[in-house]
Each structure stands twice: as C-alpha cells, then as structure tokens.
Write a protein that binds this DNA or RNA. Structure first.
Lengths: 187, 187
DNA sequence: GCTCACATGTAATCCGTTACATGATTCT
DNA sequence: AGAATCATGTAACGGATTACATGTGAGC
C-alpha cells in the first residue's frame, strides 16, 4: 500500500543524513511542523514499517551509553521519495482554523466580544510569527551544513508570510467591524 | 464531555434557523468547509448526540413525501454555542499542506521539476480562489436573509485573501528559484 | 538530589473520511 | 428512461494525538 505523507516526511528527513527517531522529531519540530506536524506515536511505528519495506536501514548507535538507533535512507527509499515528489494528482491541503470558525458564527456575540475574539486570534499568529522568526538563524545554519540547500529557508519565509497574513487579516476584520458598528450600530 | 468543534459547527448552523442534516452539510460546503470541513459521517451521529444532550430538538418534517428531520437549536444549545464562542484558551489551528511539504524536500529534484511543483500548487490555489469568488453572490443573498449578518461575507473575503496569498507565494518562490538558478546553477 | 534533555516505544482513544446501503422526487 | 438532487444513516478504516511506561546522562 502507498506511503503516508508522514512516512515521506521521515524519508525526506533521512535523505538529508542518518538520524534517530528522536532527531527526526526535533528537526521536524523546527521545520515541517508548521505545515505537516508529526508525533512520536507515528514516528517509531513508521520507522519499523519503512525498515521492513527496505526503504530505510536502522543501525544501533548508542551515544554515551544511551540506547539509540540511527536510520539511513536506502536507494529504494530515495527512489520512493523522488516518486512522491514528482507524483501527479491532487495535493492534500487542509486547514482547520477555530479562530476563523468562531468568527463566522460571531453573530451570536456582541461587538466587544467579537473584537476580543479577533485580538486573541491575532495574538496567536503574532506569537507563531515570532516563533518562526526565531528559527531563522537555526535554519540558516542548517542550510550551510546541508550543502547549500536554501529551500528550507524559503519554506520558512513562506511560513512567516503565512502568519503575517493572518495578523493583517485580523486587523482588517477589526477595522471592517468598527465601520459597520459606527454606521448601523451593533447587536 | 465537551463538544467537538464539529458539533459547534452544527450548533452554529442551526442557530441561523432550523435545518435538516442534509441542509447543514449543504450550507457548510459553501462556507465553513474551507477552514473546518465536515462530512455526513459526522453530522448524523452528532445530531443524535446533540439531541440526547438537549442542545437541539428534532422534528419530523417530510417535504414532498420525502423523509426528512429538521432540527432546531434549544436555549441550552444557544448557551453552549455562546460558551464556546467566548471560551478562553487555545484555539485549534492546523495546517496540512502537501505542496509546501514537497517544496521543503524539493532539494531532491532538479530545477525544472521544482518549478513544475510550484505551478501545480499555484494552480490549485488559483482554482480554490475562483471557487470562493463564485460563492460570493450566494453569500450576499444569505446575508440578506440572515437579517444583515455580514460576518459570512467577511469570512469569505478572508478565505479569498488566503488563497491569493498562496498564489502570490508560489510566484515569489518561483522568482527566487530562478534567481539562484541563474547565478549559481542548479543541481 | 533534582531537573532537563536524550531516547524509545505502546495502547487507548479520538476524530474524521470513505464507501456503502437505501429510497423518493424532480428534471431532462 | 435515466440522471441528478434530496435525504438519512452505518460500518470500516485510517491517520494522528495523548498519555503512559521506562531508562540514561548531564548540568545545576
């Protein structure tokens, strides 16, 4: 059966060099997390499956006496990754945004509550924007060691622009709310 | 136990007037779908649960001899909706975007393939933008009958801006790709 | 001695989609 | 006659999160 996108994240991470499950999670947490989150509950079982399928190879590599398994991608794994990257057909795109959802139904609230909601949403995206901005130097360093792969940087910039859009949209919505409020009066 | 966001979608839809499960789905498909999708597999069981919890009340209302159950929100349901809308704490925000994910790992591709990927992603968002734009007149009509609730319109505009951002980001990324390609040469 | 980071894994559970089953009515 | 729309529901499955369980080593 076909691999999940999460499996491809693991494959993609290992293509940049051998890693333990723990390291995969750590790298994902500062990069892919913002548009494709993964958790330990998926990583370890998936590593097992990928190894059985011959797409990766695990090797025991205890560091400082600590138990540790490091996985490396195989040629078959590289091929599977490439196949996925170039595969035609629909790309899964899913957004679940409780803030926008609440706003959609905010007719049940009064003006003050609506504004408070927008401010909360705005604050969240502002915080995420800062979180991403803080990663930038790390990503810069990672790009160096990855032999000049700048795509991580570009993706990060995309993530920052994404958060900025929501901040701006919240501001815009609040202004629009004030306009109607002042002309017709709110509920 | 607390209600899911999907349950709140149903509650929110019913607050705008009694509806059948089928109608709820139809309304959601042209509004909340883009930031909180729901399916029949959730709607019907959830309607049952909400009724048992006393938050909505179903009434058999066959139209043209067709079997049909219409649900109305109860005062308890309205209260539950309000509680949710004003509840403090983290708002679930989740993005799963296979296009950006692939781009992040596109180091494994050559320049031409990378550009093709961006074009595919761009086309998808372009199509979504048009889909949303086509809904605008419908939403306008819905705002009238909803007694001047303009929030649906504002949310729709937000959705359009969201799609436009991705279209623009794809263009931006393609330009950035061309820059590095022409100066240092690609893989 | 304690806490944090490193490290691996599983089980329960939740949420959601997809596919299926069924049937009436309306439009072409 | 056939397709599309209206209409309700369930079962199987899949993907992911959370919580739990366990243990080492490093730094304070």
């Amino acid at each position: 059966m076909p691999l999940t996108n999460t499996a491809h994240v693991i494959l993609g991470m290992l293509r940049k060099g051998p890693k333990s499950g723990y390291e995969i999670k750590a790298k994902a947490d500062i990069s892919t997390r913002f548009f494709w989150a993964i958790s330990y509950g998926q990583i370890y079982p998936e590593l097992k499956r990928l190894e059985e399928a011959g797409l990766i190879e695990g090797e025991s590599d205890p560091a400082d006496g600590r138990q540790r398994r490091v996985f490396a991608i195989t040629p078959a794994g590289e091929q599977a990754l490439r196949d996925w990257l170039t595969r035609p057909g629909d790309l899964h795109t899913e957004l679940r945004h409780e803030g926008v959802l609440r706003f959609f139904f905010a007719d049940a609230l009064d003006h003050t509550e609506r504004v408070a909601l927008l401010r909360t949403v705005r604050a969240k995206h502002e915080r995420l924007r800062e979180e991403l901005a803080a990663i930038q130097p790390v990503a810069e360093a990672m790009a160096e060691e990855a032999g000049g792969d700048r795509l991580g940087l570009l993706t990060l910039e995309t993530g920052i622009a994404y958060q900025e859009l929501f901040v701006e949209l919240c501001d815009r919505l609040e202004r629009r709310l004030d306009e109607t409020e002042s002309t017709v009066g709110g509920s």
